[in-house]
Design a binder for these strands. Structure first.
Lengths: 228, 228
DNA sequence: GACGCGCGTCAAGGTTGCGTCAAGGTCCTA
DNA sequence: TAGGACCTTGACGCAACCTTGACGCGCGTC
């Protein structure tokens, strides 16, 4: 199910969009300002963001940059300003599409479908298996020795980032950005605590990790084959 | 270099686009009808298609379908028709974007950049190989004789600088600046210690280096082919 | 043949970063 | 309002990593 984040400071329009999108079967979040938008996108991981420019607290470009710092979610910008320079600015700061008000709901929906369609094939990894456990990315399930292992939401997003890039070293900063949001880049404590938690749940011998490997001073890596 | 296919039956407009895009450093193909467009896209594999609707020989949707049958290249539709139903039809048949005429060249360029940016990350990992070991720069991983070799962060940055410039001699000062920072330009001790470490881990015979070559009094060089 | 220079080698410290644990704190649900 | 699940925070011990200095070797110079 596709989750959409609507960012708009006019309650009327936001509500209209929300109702329309919900009726089409989308899961909808609404944010009235930039800060809320960034927080919600960290918490709920929308598949598409519809961003109305002219928010009370932040510049449109800053919202886009805040998102792009850690996410590649498609961003569709709405704006009353039809000047070319505005469009260029928004698109070049990382937006995927720019729709000028007034616009038809049908068009917006079609553009959302287009964005959705593009990012869909990115989900190529249905399940990752190791000798010790199996991670089903789409179903969000982990099975170990026949029984299901329960992960908390934070643990899961951390595992997800690592498992989606098997063998690749992910820098601490990137992990923190993608899991906790761009303002937590330096809170390496979190990583330590949560990696321990994950290992306790998944590693055969948590004191000697085979799958979730630490690279001191750099980051962590998931080794599908298992190590040592 | 990005290759763009412009599909337009008005020679004037096609030529204008072509000149503009070429001036921006794009490689441009031009097709005057749908059949040619499909042929050219098979032959030249463009990275972006700019498609003007209202071609003489084919319906716009058919061109889009013809492309989508085998390719996921971003398609930006140009059209004089601003009706919502037209936009929806084009987007739902597989177009990525829809621009209504008249439009500004700057906007079109920005939309092309956006499309380009989205499809970019499909690149492969640039791995540097020698006979003795393989360096994967993005995954930060080195494999030697089948087993992984562990490098510390400092060792990595040093290897990275050298391997990114194969065959080229890097002066000691530059290495020290890039790895330890500008205030360490004269600490050649570090280089000696770390080069030894790296050779011990990667060279088949560390006492007679084949890949990480010393140029006395000048600097170091990475030789991908191996020497002596 | 003695000396200086540049490089390679080694190992002992000091420093930083990581794993671990447990005590609050917050939010949701019953 | 009480309980549980989850997240945050800080302290501590240990391992990984970096720094530093001493020594040896080869080569060119005087």
């Amino acid at each position: 199910m596709t989750r959409i984040l609507v960012v708009d400071d006019e309650p009327q329009l936001a509500r209209g969009l929300s109702v329309n999108l919900s009726a089409r079967g989308y899961e909808v979040d609404v944010a009235g300002d930039g800060r809320t938008a960034l927080e919600l996108s960290v918490a709920h991981r929308p598949d598409v963001v519809v961003l109305d420019l002219g928010l009370p607290d932040m510049d449109g470009a800053d919202v886009i940059n805040g998102l792009r710092a850690w996410s590649e979610v498609p961003i569709i910008v709405l704006s009353a300003r039809g000047q070319e320079t505005d469009k260029i600015a928004a698109l070049d700061s990382g937006a995927d599409d720019y729709v000028t008000k007034p616009f038809g709901m049908g068009e917006l929906l079609a553009r959302i479908r287009a964005a959705e369609r593009r990012s869909a094939p990115a989900e190529e990894t249905p399940a990752v298996e190791t000798e010790a456990f199996t991670v089903d990315l789409t179903a969000k399930r982990i099975v170990r020795e026949g029984i299901e292992v329960h992960l908390t939401p934070t643990e899961w997003s951390l595992v997800e980032v690592l498992v989606r890039n098997p063998g690749r070293l992910i820098p601490q900063r990137q992990l923190l950005k993608e899991v906790w949001g761009p303002t937590y880049e330096l809170e390496t404590n979190y990583l330590r605590v949560y990696m321990a938690q994950i290992r306790r749940k998944l590693e055969p011998d948590p004191s000697r990790p085979r799958y979730f490997i630490t690279e001191a001073g750099m980051g962590y890596r998931f080794e599908a084959a298992g190590r040592s």
